[in-house]
């Protein structure tokens, strides 16, 4: 009798999930279980917030970071801090049933602590466009709205394919993607921006190196002499036009090809990235008359 009891107990423990619960594996290989589609989500990354809104799950977000600024409703969300260090207590106060974190931005220790406290944490880690598309689909399944997610992903894929067809056979201008100007920091080949550049029909001129976002000096800039320089506007940064005007020898300066693009479109692996790609493609290949939907 005792043996039977023990056996059934073991059996009970071995059963992976009780009826109704679903298991997910996140981008860093962690497994989480959800009994039902989450109703109280905290998003710790702007791209995740954007995606959730785009697939109709915005109403389920109870809090986000202070950098979550799109769409307009997202600005009204309660804040749990910056993504580098959202307050643990802050997060708990919102009684979330799911926290979505980003492997790029949140420290593993935070994920660990939240898991210890019994809060399911799903970690996303999109490093390129394909990852970002997969993340959109994964978030759809996670939130119980795969249909909308699938539609969003497919829509982006269609636009990407259309763009690729147009760009086929075109020459690829050399591009330097800057992240900030003071100090001059550029996007290396292993970055999301780099994938944006190549999808837009450009060639990232930054060679592989020890740092993904290396610091460059004026000499590197002059030696590389890119056809196009991408800049993003930040408060507290020098005016890009004035900054590059110091070196009129540069081809990009002579041809007026210092392109300013909304930083959120090219740095965030969310639904807006397609806008970044299309805008950049249009700037890189003005002769092709690429359309960018409003």
């Amino acid at each position: 009798m005792a043996r039977l009891l023990l056996f059934s107990l073991l059996l009970f423990l071995l059963v992976p999930c009780p009826a109704g619960s679903t298991e997910f594996t996140d981008a860093v290989g962690r497994r989480i279980e959800l009994d039902a589609p989450p109703q109280r989500i905290i998003s710790l990354a702007p791209a995740v917030t954007e995606t959730l809104y785009a697939i109709g799950l915005g109403a389920k977000i109870v809090a986000a970071t202070q950098y979550c600024t799109w769409p307009e409703e997202a600005r009204q969300l309660p804040r749990v801090g910056e993504y580098a260090d959202p307050g643990l207590e802050n997060i708990l106060l919102f009684r979330p049933d799911l926290v979505i974190a980003s492997a790029d931005m949140n420290r593993p220790a935070l994920v660990e602590r939240l898991t210890e406290l019994g809060i399911p944490v799903y970690v996303v880690y999109p490093r390129n466009i394909n990852d970002a598309l997969a993340t959109i689909r994964a978030l759809g399944e996670l939130g119980g709205n795969s249909t909308a997610a699938e539609k969003l992903a497919e829509d982006i894929e269609v636009r990407l394919a259309r763009l690729a067809a147009k760009l086929a056979g075109q020459n690829k201008p050399g591009v330097l993607g800057t992240v900030m100007l003071d100090p001059l920091t550029v996007a290396g080949p292993e970055t999301f921006v780099s994938d944006i550049i190549s999808r837009a029909g450009g060639r990232n001129l930054v060679p592989p190196g020890p740092s993904r976002y290396p610091a460059w000096n004026d000499e590197s800039l002059l030696t590389t002499d890119p056809d196009v320089i991408i800049v993003t506007n930040h408060p507290g940064q020098p005016d890009p036009t004035l900054y590059f005007k110091r070196w009129p020898q540069l081809r990009a300066v002579q041809a007026g090809r210092i392109i300013e693009i909304n930083a959120d479109w090219i740095h965030r692996p969310g639904p807006l990235m397609i806008l970044g790609i299309e805008t950049l493609a249009r700037a890189l290949h003005p002769e092709l008359d690429i359309e960018v939907p409003k």
């Binding site: 930054v206 060679p207 190196g209 020890p210 740092s211 290396p214 610091a215 460059w216 000096n217 000499e219 590197s220 030696t223 590389t224």
Partner: peptide, 10 residues
């Protein structure tokens, strides 16, 4: 510092 990983600088 300028040349080991040029064009990046350490």
């Amino acid at each position: 510092a300028r040349s080991v990983y040029a064009p990046a600088e350490i």
